[in-house]
């Protein structure tokens, strides 16, 4: 029951944030990818910086159950899958999360995106037997690789000379600096 309420609250908050920053509008995504308007890139970079600082601070003070840390395995499939994702993203301008927001605000093209997405994942389900015997599932960097050294977990830490919080703050500072200096659109009415 508690889990259900949390799912509703957090999902609603995430959808609210996606919509409020303008990410459910494909023009915003596409103009970012065309390097015409860096607004969403700045939002994403700063969001990563803020959230990273928050979770690593919480972890440093033992305020987080470390089993919440979810480090996905680094495989060739991550790079190749990302490239396939990029082909679709560059044309559609939707991602799985933003499309859900776009459908609820009445965007008809997003409904076709959702339909395509369901078929794309279905193709993967039936094609998985083929994929799992290829190089795509081979791991790199020891699999669940993480830059910050979170010791109690058994992931492969890349930066082991610094405490996890310091590594996270350095990365956050770099991301924030880039977000600060990137230009947003000079003509906001073009969106």
């Amino acid at each position: 029951m508690t889990t259900t309420i949390l799912a509703i609250l957090l999902g609603t908050a995430f959808g609210f944030a996606i919509h409020r920053v303008g990410a459910s509008n494909p023009s915003g995504i596409i103009n970012m990818l065309r390097l015409q308007d860096m607004h969403l890139m700045r939002v994403i970079l700063f969001a990563i910086a803020i959230s990273s600082t928050m979770i690593f601070t919480a972890m440093a003070f033992d305020m987080v159950d470390l089993s919440h840390l979810t480090i996905k395995s680094m495989t060739w499939g991550v790079i190749v899958g990302g490239m396939v994702f990029g082909l679709g993203w560059g044309v559609a301008g939707y991602c799985p999360g933003t499309a859900a927001c776009a459908v609820s605000e009445g965007r008809k093209d997003a409904r076709f995106f959702i339909l395509g997405a369901m078929i794309g994942s279905f193709f993967y389900m039936i094609g998985f037997d083929f994929v799992k015997d290829t190089f795509l599932v081979d791991t790199l960097f020891g699999g669940q690789a993480i830059l910050a050294d979170v010791t109690p977990k058994n992931e492969t830490a890349i930066v082991s000379v610094l405490p996890a919080l310091v590594t996270a703050i350095i990365i956050a500072a770099i991301f924030t600096t880039v977000a600060y200096f990137l230009p947003s659109s000079k003509k906001p009415e073009s969106l």
Partner: peptide, 16 residues
């Protein structure tokens, strides 16, 4: 957008 959705979810699953 249909084609994009198809590619994006296939890619997402490949990348997990």
């Amino acid at each position: 957008t249909f084609t994009g959705g198809l590619l994006i979810l296939f890619g997402s699953r490949l990348a997990s």
